[in-house]
Structures are given as structure tokens and as C-alpha cells.
Design a protein around this nucleic acid. Structure first.
Lengths: 334, 334
DNA sequence: CTGAAAGCGCTTACAG
DNA sequence: CTGAAAGCGCTTACAG
């Protein structure tokens, strides 16, 4: 494997010149730079990661902690892990995956061994032990999600409250009087996940504020239970005309299938909005209006903030990204 | 942050003694070891990762490449990523996640920069570019999955062919004459994923061998399509009495719900086996017999083989783990 | 059983 | 615009 020494002698310069040419940290004569670049290419030189970590002040690795608890909605969570990895690569960073067992000890380990430059915390609970840990770590850290206590933390997330209000407003503005929310499985709310209750509470509150009757039901994995939940939401008199779904893809598909079986058309009899969804609702039958949760958006900002902290202090903050509404024709006036 | 020097002076020994005491690579007097351990604990010393990588011959990092293509069944794939990470930790290894964009360039990068000691390849296609790359890499690599061409590769996987035969045998032995397989979405077979066709082909072949009539249908994400697939499998005369499902959890739940709606009881009218499943079928309604796919099993063996290659050559091989059958009462004699 | 020292391959002041 | 050299914090022969 070629080292910086090989490149230096091939290019006829010192190793410090090679280093500076590659890092761009000082001006290099055009001809010198070209010779170095040629040598790098020819020798297929890549800086030794360990040496870089030891000599420099960066490891170019970010830790991602994603506990993946039982009952987490893994497709969405995985989408975030991926989005973080992808965003990190834009900054020439790699991503080290810390799992459940390692949530606490692992963070300590990779931090104090200087394996990583910063930490991205995923799947944040309302009361998350990793929040305390991160506060004490004195290492760049960004949470994707908002715990109850955000003191001293840098958090990025979709504005789920605004998303819920947006969904309610759409239905209210279309004249719907009775609206329902089909959510995540009950266990997700119980284990303290941060955003499902944020969405639910804002939904119920804003519906009341707009003078609507609002209902809520959890969306379990069992199709039969999904059907029961939809039945409950529709009401004994079937007076529900606006449905918001914030939960898993298969739950939403099941609900649509069941609604169709009941002989209800969307949006004729029932206007439907999918909210906080990471999947593509335009291929649903029928396609659903959606307030998407874009993993790339929060992830990119989170990575950006984590890396920014390496060079400059970043004030603790909660950055909530504004929701957008994508119309696919599943909402009509009552 | 404490360094090995701090530990050495606190314990009154040289840094080499500290290093050897921690690595266990040479005998250390009991009293010396104790003093060193005390110092380590007191100073909360953890070896600097970069220094360790540079000076030693190991980085204690394994790369995991998991493309997570569209249409991959992410819960199962994520389970493997997690299982690899967990297994790696047993060997004091961390896991670096390489994604889609990085499949090829990323492997090259982390390899030639000596960031990782080895590679675990997940979500293997029948014709996977990463297989060729790995062959040329001269770095410990293990595939979880079996591509068409396994020359020079170390592969570990569940024996999906044996699993299919096991499922067929159970049904045949119970006297069932017409059996069906509800599989993954068609796109999974088309994109060249390695194990779904392995299972399907062995299923059809062994069913023929046992003199059974066998049917196959794909399990799409749309519940209505799942229902249509089950309808097809049941046959116009409803002569199907044995059903094997190898696919996504929600598809299997949907199929069960639909079967119940059709007024069929399991196992009374229909014996059902879930195969190659990473989820818990004992909570299904009714609980299903299962030939489980245990991510931990293949992952542990894969990690073990990857790390073994660091100290001794490992012959290319395909290690197929024997399937097991877990009875939950969903198969009865016809 | 233990120590002094070379060396891993970089980055970055220090000098010119 | 470029170079010589210190130093990052370990591991591991080499010595005794």
C-alpha cells in the first residue's frame, strides 16, 4: 500500500507538501499540485486512516446510535440511518453504527477512545438516557428528534406539531367536521417515543381549536385490529369524513383496503391524509395526499450541525423543519 | 484524556508493560497487573483508537455493506445489520456502515485506507458486483448469502433449500397433496436477490419429487394483491390444504386474516408453515409453525470467519446452516 | 518478568 | 511557495 512518502518521492516533493496539497490547507504551485495529483492517482494512494486520526484532530467518523428497540418501525428508522450515512459521506465522513446494547457504554467507548468526531442520536425517547450522556460528553452531538428536556442539546426534526395542524387545517378548510387519526401501535406511544405523541396531541388540540370532533385510534400490526380501529374511527353512525394516518405503511394500506371493502370511496366519502410518512403514498390505491417525513432533510442538517461543532461552538437549539403538503387528490370538500 | 503514559506512571511501570498487560500478549506479574488495572480504572483510560490502528495491525472495525435497495424487506435486512454489529462487539469490533452509493467505491476506500480489518457483505445478489470486488480485495470478507458464483468466496447462510424441503416434507408427511408457496414481492425475485429463488426452486422441485401438486404466488405490499394471491393459491376448487409462506410479516398476517375471512380455519382446513422468517410467528392468530431465519446465527459465524482470517488463512467455502422446525400447531394431518 | 526504543504514517507549527 | 522535523499514542521486536 502506497504511503505519503511514496507519493512525495514520486512527485519530487516533501511529504508535508503532499499533505498540504491534499488537504488544501495552504497554497501550492499549480505545477506541483499537478505532479502530486498524478502521483496519487498512479499509486492509488489513500491516506492511512489510523495515521490521519492520530496526527490530525479528526477521525472522519461519526457515531450513529439507533437502539432499534422491539416494536420500532424499522423501515423508517433504517431510512434515517441510511440518510445519515449518506449525508455524512458528503462531508467525507463515515458512520459507525452503535446498537441497543451499546447505547450507553458504546457512546462512552467510541468517545473516549477518540474513534469518532461526533454523534448522531436517532430514535429519541421523550426521556432518553442518551440525552444525559450526550450532555456530559463534550463532543459534537445532534439528536434527530426532540426529548422532553432539551436543555443544552442540539435537536433537529420535522415539526410534527405543525404537520398535525396542517393536516387538521386542510380537512377543516374543506368543511369536514369529524376527523380521525389512525396512529402507530400503542406500544410505540407507551415506550416513550417522542414524535408520535407530539403529532397526536397537536392533532387533537388543533382539531378542538378548529371546532372539530376528533378521534384517535392506534394502528396495530394485526390486520384485524387495524380494521377494528378504522371501524371505531368511522363511528357507529359513520359520520367520519376526514381521516389522517400517521403510522406504518402496511397499516395505512390495510386501512385503505378495508375502507374500500366497506364500500366507502376516497375521497368521495372519506378524505384521507397520510402524515409523517417516509414511504411513497402516490402508489397507494388511491394515491394519498401526504405530509412527508423526509429522512434526508433532518439528517443532512443534523450532520451539518455536528460537523460544524468541530470548528465553532454551536448554540443549543431545537430546529424544527417546516412540513410540506403534497397533493394527490385524496382530500375534497365535504 | 488519559494516555498510556499516564497509566504507566500511575502504576510505576513502563508503557510497554501497560500495553502488554492490557493485550495479554505476555506474562505480567500479578501485583503489576493489579496496579495497572487500578490505574486504568482510576484514570478511565481507553486506548486511543487512531494510535492503536497505526501501531498495531488491527483497526477493530468491520465494514458492513448493506445496499438497502428499494424494495428490500428492510426489517429483515436491518435485523442482519444489527446482528452483525452485535456479533462484532463480542470480538471487541465496531461496525462501519457502507450504503448503496458506497457499495463499490466505499469498499475500496475503507480497505485501502486501512480503516477496517474486514468486510461483511449483506443482501447478496445472485450476480453481485461486490463479490468480484471482494475477490480482488485481499482482505478478510464474508458474504451472508450465496451468489451464483462462489469461487474464492467465504459464504454463510441459512440452508434455504433444506428449509424448503423441510417445509414440503412436513406437509407431505401429514398427507397433504396440494401445497402452495406465498413468496416475496415479484420485484425481489426480479432484482436478483439470492435466497428467495433458492427457496422457491427447492420448494417446487421437492414438492414434485414428493408427488405433490405445487403452486407459487408472489406476495405484494398491497393487501388487495395479497388476497388475490391467496385466492389463486387456494385454487378454483379450493383444493389447497398446505400453505408455506416465505416473505414479509405483514403479507403473512394479511394472508391469515384473509383465510379466516374466507371461513377457513388453520390448521383445520389449511395447514400453514412460515419459513425463513425473522419475526415472531407465535403471536400470530393463529400461531404459525416456523422454520426461522435467525440473523444472529449467520452473523456470528460470518464475523467469526472474518476475524479468523486475520490470523490464519480460511479456505473459500459455502457454509449452510441447517434449518430447524418450531412447532406451534399450525400443521395437522389432512 | 520488565524496560528502552523504534516505528507505524500522518498533520502541523516552525523556518525560510 | 516549500521543507525538515516534532509529535500524535500506541505496539512490538530487541535486550536483559
Amino acid at each position: 500500500m502506497a504511503t505519503i512518502k511514496d507519493v512525495a518521492s514520486a512527485a519530487g516533493v516533501s511529504i508535508s507538501t503532499v499533505s498540504y496539497a491534499l488537504s488544501g490547507k495552504r497554497a501550492i504551485a499549480e505545477s506541483t499540485r499537478r505532479r502530486i495529483e498524478d502521483a496519487v492517482r498512479e499509486l492509488d494512494y489513500r491516506p492511512n486512516a489510523g495515521a490521519r486520526m492520530l496526527a490530525g484532530r479528526r477521525t472522519y467518523i461519526l457515531a450513529v446510535t439507533e437502539p432499534l428497540r422491539p416494536d420500532t418501525y424499522t423501515p423508517a428508522h433504517m431510512a434515517f440511518v441510511l440518510a445519515v450515512a449518506t449525508a455524512a459521506r458528503r462531508y467525507d465522513y463515515d458512520v459507525l453504527l452503535l446498537t441497543q446494547e451499546e447505547a450507553d457504554a458504546g457512546l462512552r467507548r467510541v468517545t473516549s477512545s477518540r474513534l469518532v468526531d461526533g454523534v448522531i442520536v436517532l430514535d429519541v425517547l421523550r426521556d432518553d438516557e442518551r440525552a444525559d450522556l450526550v450532555r456530559s460528553l463534550d463532543l459534537p452531538a445532534v439528536l434527530i428528534g426532540v426529548p422532553d428536556n432539551t436543555d443544552g442539546l442540539v435537536c433537529v426534526d420535522l415539526d410534527f406539531e405543525a404537520a398535525a395542524r396542517l393536516a387538521v387545517d386542510r380537512l377543516a378548510d374543506a368543511g369536514h367536521l369529524t376527523v380521525g387519526l389512525l396512529g402507530h401501535p400503542a406500544s410505540v406511544y407507551e415506550r416513550g417515543s417522542n414524535f408520535p405523541p407530539r403529532f397526536r396531541d397537536a392533532f387533537l388540540e388543533h382539531a378542538a381549536h378548529r371546532g372539530l370532533e376528533a378521534r384517535f385510534a392506534t394502528g396495530e400490526h394485526d390486520p384485524a385490529q387495524v380494521r377494528a380501529a378504522v371501524t371505531t374511527l368511522l363511528g357507529p353512525d359513520g359520520d367520519l369524513t376526514g381521516l389522517v394516518m400517521h403510522g406504518e405503511e402496511q397499516t395505512q394500506r390495510e386501512a385503505l383496503t378495508y375502507v374500500a371493502e366497506r364500500g366507502l370511496t376516497v375521497p368521495g366519502d372519506l378524505s384521507v391524509i397520510s402524515a409523517g410518512s417516509t414511504f411513497d403514498t402516490s402508489t397507494f390505491d388511491p394515491p394519498l395526499d401526504v405530509i412527508p417525513l423526509v429522512p434526508g432533510a433532518s439528517s443532512e442538517r443534523a450532520v451539518e450541525l455536528a460537523i460544524a461543532q468541530l470548528s465553532e461552538p454551536v448554540e443549543p437549539r431545537v430546529e424544527l423543519l417546516a412540513p410540506t403538503y403534497v397533493d394527490h387528490g385524496s382530500v375534497t370538500p365535504r
